[in-house]
Amino acid sequence: MITRVTNWLDERIGWRNVWEAIFLRKIPKVNWFYTLGSATLFTAINQAVTGILLTIYYAPTPDHAYDSVQYITTQIPMGWLIRGLHHWGASAMVVLTVLHMLRVILLGAYKYPREVTWFSGVFLLLVVVGFGFTGYLLPWDQKAYWGSTVGTRIAGSAPLIGDWILRVMRGGAELSAVTLARFFGVHVWVLPASLILLLAIHMYLVIKIGISATPGREEKA
């Protein structure tokens, strides 16, 4: 029965080709350090799932942000878990991204023919940092408010265009309701869209070119 269904589907959408191309392809034997990339991907999925769940109750206005976060944490069943996963997932994502990158650097995996994969990876790092920066403000507690005040002020101390950058980031001179709304917008729309696009490129290239083999020592001539 199941075979019939899968065959029926394969005839129409050709999933078997995709399955074979992605999952049954042969790749060099690699060690456990090579799981860092997929672990990072897992944290990204974790952030997406828990993030979507959080938006169900979160309200991005100064009046309600703090109360709604508190409501999620204390009133909603499992709310503490969802928020906890998102909070710690963010840190884990940064850690794993950096570790993954160190692995790539130390084993020379950014070299020919994987330069473009590397570029997309660096962009992904910037997106992850952006997530951390914008997400920090959203709970609207003391830490969030003052951390973001200082963060935006640091960005604003750049020469010439600093003040302008600051105003763009805050949506005005002060850290206000406008800032919260735009940080939220960037955090749930702009950055996820960029993340998905960059991840798609990154993954496509990884599958297309194949994961790099563990390099051996150069034979001394």
């Binding site: 974790n46 799932v49 769940l53 169900i56 009133q75 069943p77 499992m78 709310g79 878990l81 969802i82």
Partner: peptide
Amino acid sequence: GFGIPAIAYIIGP
């Protein structure tokens, strides 16, 4: 691990 808490979370209120 995601699904069960998510359902509880959504239908909670």
